[in-house]
C-alpha cells in the first residue's frame, strides 16, 4: 500500500514563492487567458460578496428591528411586534431549536452510524449497492413532503407511544403528557431525525469505507470478532468523520423550516414536557409569522433569521474544519 503511494506521488517540486506565482499569473498575457481568468476569479469573488452581503443586509435590517424593541431581544418570552411599543425576543426560539435538534441528533446519529456500518460491514454484498442507492435517493426527497407525511401519518401514529411514555416515564416531568395532539417537540425531533438520517449515513459510510483494509485484517488475524474489529479499527479511524457528518446533519436540523411548520402546533412559550404541544423554532417561527407581519414584524423576523444564520455558520464551519483535516472525503455532495 505504502509503496504504491510513493510511486504515485510526483517528485517533490519546490513550492512556488508568492513572487513566482504573481509572475505566473502575469504570464497569462493572451487576451483570452486574461478574460477567462478574470471571469472565473470574478465568480469566485462574487460568491464571497454574496456571503458578505447576506451577513450585511441581515444585520442592517436586524439592527432596525432591535433598536425599536422595548424588550430584551435575547431573553424576552414574547413576540408582539404589533404592540406599541413592540416587544419581542428569541428565548423561546433558541430553546425550541436547540431541543428539537438535540432530540433529532440523539435519535439519528446512532441509527445513522449503525446503518453506515451495516452498509460497509454487515449487509450481504449484493444488497449494499441498491440500499446505498435508495438512501441517496431518500436524501433528495423534498422537506415539504416529509412535512406532509409527518403531519398526516406520523402524528396520528405517535398517540400510542405518547401514552406509553406518559404512563412509564411521566414522573420525570419531561415525558408527561396532558393528552393534546402529539404535535410537540418530540414528534418534531423524530421527524427531523428521519430527515437527516440519509445525510449522516452517506458521509459516515464514505468514512468507514476508507478504513485501511490492513487494519481490519490485522484485527481479524488476531482473532477479533466482527464487533471487535469495528471497535478497534473502524470506529477510531472514522470518529472525526462521524462527528463532522453529525454536525452537517445538525446544520440541516437547525435550519429546517417546512417539516417543523407543518408538524408543530406552536405557542410562544416553553413547555416543560417534550410531549405537550407548544414552543417554536427559528425557521418555523419565520414561516408561520411571516404572512401577517407588518414591516417591523418582518424586520424582527429577519433579526431572528440572522441569529439562525450565525448559529448554522458556526456549526457548519466547525464541521468543515474537522473534515478539512482529512481531505479525502467531504460531505458537500452527499
Amino acid at each position: 500500500m505504502d509503496t504504491t503511494q510513493i510511486k504515485d506521488t510526483p517528485p517533490p517540486t519546490p513550492q512556488p514563492t508568492v513572487a513566482e506565482q504573481k509572475r505566473a499569473a502575469r504570464g497569462a498575457t493572451r487576451p483570452g487567458d486574461r478574460v477567462f481568468l478574470g471571469l472565473s476569479r470574478g465568480s469566485g469573488i462574487l460568491l464571497l460578496v454574496i456571503m458578505a452581503a447576506i451577513a450585511g443586509f441581515l444585520t442592517y435590517r436586524a439592527s432596525i428591528a432591535i433598536s425599536k424593541d422595548e424588550a430584551n431581544f435575547f431573553t424576552a418570552f414574547e413576540w408582539n411586534t404589533q404592540l406599541v411599543p413592540p416587544k419581542f425576543g428569541i428565548a423561546v426560539l433558541v430553546f425550541g431549536t436547540v431541543v428539537s435538534s438535540i432530540i433529532a441528533m440523539a435519535i439519528a446519529v446512532p441509527i445513522a452510524v449503525a446503518i453506515a456500518l451495516f452498509l460497509t460491514h454487515y449487509a450481504p454484498r449484493k444488497l449494499r449497492g441498491p440500499i446505498a442507492y435508495v438512501i441517496d435517493l431518500l436524501a433528495a426527497v423534498p422537506s415539504i413532503v416529509y412535512g406532509l407525511w409527518g403531519a398526516l401519518i406520523l402524528v396520528p401514529h405517535m398517540n400510542g407511544l405518547y401514552g406509553w411514555l406518559d404512563d412509564y416515564l411521566g414522573w420525570t416531568g419531561i415525558f408527561s403528557w396532558q393528552g393534546g395532539a402529539p404535535r410537540s417537540m418530540l414528534t418534531v425531533g423524530i421527524l427531523l431525525a428521519i430527515m437527516i438520517l440519509p445525510i449522516i449515513t452517506n458521509v459516515s459510510r464514505e468514512v468507514f469505507r476508507q478504513v485501511p483494509q490492513m487494519h481490519e485484517e490485522a484485527a481479524l488475524a488476531l482473532g477479533a470478532t466482527r464487533w471487535e474489529v469495528i471497535r478497534m479499527a473502524v470506529i477510531p479511524f472514522g470518529r472525526s468523520g462521524v462527528i463532522s457528518a453529525s454536525m452537517l446533519g445538525l446544520g440541516r436540523a437547525l435550519g429546517e423550516t417546512m417539516a417543523v411548520a407543518t408538524v408543530l402546533s406552536p405557542t410562544f412559550d416553553i413547555q416543560a414536557s417534550l410531549l405537550d404541544p407548544g414552543g417554536g423554532t427559528f425557521a418555523q417561527n419565520i414561516a408561520s409569522k411571516f404572512g401577517e407581519a407588518s414591516e417591523l414584524g418582518r424586520d424582527a423576523l429577519i433579526a431572528s433569521g440572522l441569529v439562525l444564520f450565525v448559529i448554522t455558520l458556526l456549526v457548519n464551519g466547525a464541521a468543515r474544519m474537522i473534515i478539512a483535516r482529512r481531505k479525502e472525503y467531504s460531505g458537500a455532495n452527499a
Binding site: 456571503m51 441581515l58 452537517l248 423550516t257 419565520i286 457548519n316 464541521a319 473534515i323
Partner: peptide, 14 residues
C-alpha cells in the same frame, strides 16, 4: 463549504 449549510429560509430572508 459553509454556504452549502445556509438554511434555505435565511437565503429567502436575504
Amino acid at each position: 463549504d459553509v454556504m452549502t449549510g445556509i438554511p434555505s429560509i435565511v437565503a429567502g430572508l436575504f
